[in-house]
């Protein structure tokens, strides 16, 4: 099973977060259609992996989305929509879906599922096995380990630079190593997301 359970500091203990990466998905149009139809069986955050630069980037968006949920100040309709919104730099949900969500042309997909268990109702909530069974059956792609190296293979940096306003940043110097540059770009991306709405 390639469904990873993410542990994220400072979230309520009854929030379970699962994530998986699927490569070369052949049915993005189908998945996209389920989203548009608001099919409840597809209540996941489907992220276009080309819009993600690292685990840190992904986890930061999840953290922001779920602190909003914990605060009771959700601006999107569902926690999953809030996570997609949290990737963005403004408060426009449909904009965020267009940029970070899947489209009929998406190749690699990161799926995030949040399950909030309520006391006394544990058995009603979906188990990791059930979630995985559903995904494995309906997302037609190659399950891949959700590592920084695998995410990096999908990242479209040109798009990222545009979305997060990272072209011609004076703080990034020409002589830096690729590693140092990417690390600083990642820091600036996380900052941009954190500052959304100020």
């Amino acid at each position: 099973m390639s469904l990873e359970t993410l542990t994220i500091d400072h979230l309520p203990p009854n929030y379970c977060v699962y994530a998986a990466l699927f490569r070369d998905v052949s049915n993005p149009d189908f998945l996209h259609a389920q989203l548009l139809a608001r099919n409840n069986a597809y209540d996941f955050a489907f992220i276009d992996a080309s819009s993600v630069i690292s685990r840190l980037h992904l986890l930061s968006a999840i953290f922001r989305g779920l602190t909003t949920l914990a605060d009771g100040t959700l601006t999107a309709t569902t926690p999953h929509a809030e996570i997609v919104l949290s990737f963005g730099v403004n408060n426009n949900v449909s904009d965020a879906y267009r940029r970070y969500g899947i489209s009929p042309k998406t190749k690699d997909v990161i799926v995030v599922k949040v399950v909030v268990t309520e006391e006394g109702k544990e058995q009603e909530s979906q188990s990791a096995e059930e979630i995985w069974a559903h995904l494995a059956e309906n997302v037609k792609g190659t399950p891949t380990e959700l590592t920084d190296a695998e995410i990096a293979k999908s990242t479209d940096w040109q798009k990222m630079r545009k979305y997060y306003g990272l072209n011609n940043v004076p703080g990034i110097q020409k002589g830096w190593s690729e590693e140092r540059r990417d690390k600083e770009l990642e820091a600036l991306v996380v900052m941009k997301m954190a500052l959304r709405g100020l």
Binding site: S60, T67, D71, P170, G171, Q173, V190, L195, L198
Partner: peptide, 22 residues
């Protein structure tokens, strides 16, 4: 947060912002 973001983008050594809830 805005000041830190601006400094960091301009290349002044300041702490990066990780997350916030104003």
């Amino acid at each position: 947060a805005k000041v830190l973001d601006r400094c960091r983008r301009e290349g002044v050594s300041v702490p990066a912002v990780y997350a916030l809830d104003a």
